[in-house]
């Protein structure tokens, strides 16, 4: 079955290459010079996509921790602040937030007398990091709250402060539960980074869009684009599974 499906797919692709009236695989045919140049142009967006995703994920991991800690406080107003942030950020679709950050935020800076331009690169990173941090915070919260209350109590009775019991008792245990979903969240960031194309960031999707405009071969070019994301995500999820095995979490028998 699997073989048959693969063969028919191969047939489709090859027949497409042959009859250029309905198919235009020549635009990304590595055997021709222009095809090879096009492929290199498309794939060259990979670096930006990876960069944006990595930096955004890094910021989100730290931001999530800063947001979740007041959310675990015994003080109600601190919990409310954390809750409002999570609910608010989670409710904003990525694209409007991206526009707001890229076009709106510089105006706020300006009104404060600051001249901070936001380029597409940092606009994309800030948006992705903020949008993701609400989810990161929720993952942290679930992880930390799943550690039995007795652990905190035992830490208190041996004299540890709140910060110390977090640092030495709770977080080291929670991290095993937190890491795999955080890594999964990274896949989400990679995919959402495609939105950066609309503010002019030269990443995978933007490159594909630009090539479509000049070559007018959307099917072929976007097909390659999907394969590019597929490869990227498959590599990451292989990494996540490796991590899960190492941490002894995830479902294994």
């Amino acid at each position: 079955m699997k073989k048959a499906a693969l063969l028919s797919l191969l047939f489709l692709v090859l027949s497409g290459c042959a009859s250029s009236s309905s198919w235009g695989w020549y635009v990304i045919d590595p055997r021709t010079k222009s095809g090879w140049i096009n492929i290199k142009f498309l794939v060259s967006g990979m670096g930006s996509t990876i960069q944006i995703s990595l930096i955004a994920a890094f910021i989100s991991i730290i931001l999530g921790l800063i947001i979740v800690l007041p959310g675990l406080s015994s003080r109600r107003w601190l919990r409310v602040i954390s809750r409002i942030y999570v609910e608010f950020v989670r409710a904003i679709p990525l694209l409007p937030m991206l526009f707001w950050v890229f076009y709106g935020l510089p105006l706020i800076f300006k009104s404060m007398g600051l001249n901070i331009p936001i380029d597409p690169f940092w606009g994309a990173i800030i948006t992705l990091a903020i949008s993701d941090s609400a989810f990161t915070a929720e993952i942290y919260r679930a992880g930390i709250q799943s550690i039995p209350k007795g652990q905190t109590e035992a830490a208190q009775t041996v004299g540890l402060s709140y910060a110390q019991s977090m640092r030495y008792v709770i977080l080291p245990q929670a991290v095993r539960l937190i890491l795999p979903p955080i890594a999964n969240q990274f896949i989400y960031i990679v995919k959402m980074s495609a939105f950066a194309s609309v503010i002019g960031m030269q990443e995978l999707t933007r490159r594909a869009n630009e090539l479509v405009v000049s070559e007018y071969r959307p099917l072929e070019i976007y097909s390659l684009l999907i394969v590019e994301y597929l490869v990227l995500v498959l590599v990451i999820s292989a990494g996540v599974r490796w991590l899960e095995r190492r941490m002894g979490t995830g479902d294994h028998r």
């Binding site: 109590e153 035992a154 830490a155 009775t157 004299g159 540890l160 030495y168 008792v169 080291p172 245990q173």
Partner: peptide, 28 residues
């Protein structure tokens, strides 16, 4: 005041020795 719990509440990620020295080192 020392406290012993019904459910022991030892720190499962640390060895016995580290369970014992954590408080004295960090709090004392």
């Amino acid at each position: 005041v020392g406290m012993v719990f019904q459910q022991f509440n030892l720190f499962p990620h640390l060895t016995v020795l580290k369970n014992l020295i954590l408080g004295p080192m960090k709090a004392r």
